[in-house]
C-alpha cells in the first residue's frame, strides 16, 4: 500500500497546515509574480493588435530581439564543449585543487552581474589584459557582438557544468569498458557510447543556460557598447523605452521576449522528454 497508484486527496488531511501554507503560497505568488505579470500583459494589450504588432516589428526592436537571441544561442552552444571538458575533467581525473575549481564553477552565479560586466569589459577593452593582445591580432571583442557572447558564455557556464556532473558521476566506467571489450576504439567509444548517454544532460544544461542568458542585462550592458541595430540587446531597449516614458512600447517588447523564452523552454522540454525516454534513464 506504500505504492498506491495515486494518492488522491482525502476529505481531511491528517498532516496539518495545508490550507495555511497553500493559501499563503498562492497569495504571495499572486502578489509578487502573477498580478504584476498580468499588469504587463494588460499594458501591452492597450496597444491593440495592430499597435502591438507595429511595436514589436519595428526594425530596431527586431534587431534587438535578434541580437539577444543569437548571442544567447551562440554562447550556450559554445558552453556545451567547454562545460563538457570541465565537467569531464572534474569527474574523471585527479586534478590538483579539484575542490577549489569545483567551487569556483559557480562564481558566475554568485558574482553580481554588474561586477562581471565591468570586469570582463576592463579585461577585453582594447587596452585590457586580454583585449590588447587580441587588438594587436586584429580582433575586437569589447563593444562588439563578440563581447556580448563572451559575457553570456561566462554567465551560462555553471548551468552546463552542473547539469553534466551528476550524470557523469552516475555513468561509471562499465559501458565504456564493455564497448572497448567489443573492439571499439577510444574515439568510437566516446562518440557512440559515452556522448549519447550525455545528450539529455547536455540539452538540459544548454536550455538552462539559454533561458538565463537570453534575458541577461547586467553583464552585457557594459561590454556591448549598446549601438542600435548592432549591439543593442532587447532588455536594454526596454530600459530605453521606459526612460522615454513609452510604457506600452516597453511592455510590448517585454511580452515578445516572454513569448520567445516560453517557446524556447517548451521546445527544449519536449526534445528532452523524447531524448530521456529513449535513453530510459
Amino acid at each position: 500500500m506504500t505504492t498506491l497508484p495515486s494518492r488522491r486527496q482525502a476529505r481531511r488531511h491528517v498532516l496539518p497546515g495545508l490550507p495555511l501554507t497553500l493559501g499563503y503560497a498562492t497569495l504571495y505568488l499572486s502578489l509578487i509574480v502573477l498580478i504584476p505579470l498580468a499588469a504587463l500583459i494588460l499594458k501591452a494589450a492597450t496597444l491593440g493588435a495592430d499597435g502591438f504588432l507595429d511595436a514589436v516589428t519595428s526594425p530596431r526592436v527586431l534587431a534587438a530581439l535578434r541580437v539577444s537571441f543569437f548571442t544567447a544561442l551562440a554562447a550556450s552552444l559554445i558552453n556545451v564543449p567547454i562545460g563538457l571538458t570541465i565537467a569531464w575533467t572534474l569527474t574523471r581525473y585527479r586534478v590538483p585543487g579539484r575542490r577549489l575549481i569545483d567551487a569556483l564553477i559557480d562564481l558566475p552565479f554568485a558574482l553580481p552581474t554588474a561586477v562581471a560586466g565591468i570586469t570582463l569589459t576592463t579585461l577585453l577593452a582594447p587596452n585590457g589584459w586580454l583585449g590588447a593582445p587580441l587588438a594587436e591580432a586584429g580582433i575586437r571583442v569589447a563593444y562588439t557582438p563578440l563581447g556580448i557572447i563572451v559575457a553570456l558564455t561566462f554567465i551560462g557556464l555553471p548551468f552546463v557544468v552542473r547539469s553534466l556532473q551528476p550524470v557523469l558521476e552516475d555513468l561509471g566506467p562499465e559501458p565504456e569498458e564493455a564497448a572497448r571489450s567489443l573492439g571499439a576504439t577510444p574515439t568510437q567509444t566516446f562518440w557512440r557510447v559515452t556522448l549519447p548517454a550525455l545528450y539529455p544532460a547536455l540539452l538540459s544544461g544548454f536550455t538552462l543556460a539559454l533561458a538565463r542568458t537570453v534575458g541577461e542585462y547586467g553583464s552585457v550592458v557594459f561590454i556591448s557598447g549598446n549601438l542600435p541595430f548592432k549591439t543593442e540587446i532587447a532588455p536594454l531597449l526596454i530600459v530605453g523605452k521606459l526612460e522615454q516614458y513609452d510604457y506600452a512600447g516597453a511592455a510590448a517588447v517585454a511580452v515578445a521576449m516572454l513569448v520567445i523564452s516560453v517557446a524556447l523552454l517548451l521546445a527544449a522540454n519536449t526534445a528532452q522528454a523524447r531524448l530521456s525516454r529513449r535513453g530510459e534513464r
Partner: peptide, 20 residues
C-alpha cells in the same frame, strides 16, 4: 497481498487516514 487494504486499515485505526 500488497494492495489488499491491510495497511490502509491500520492507518485508519491510527488516525493517519480518514475513512470515507
Amino acid at each position: 497481498p500488497s494492495g489488499s487494504g491491510k495497511t490502509t486499515l491500520l492507518r485508519v485505526i491510527a488516525g493517519l487516514e480518514t475513512p470515507d
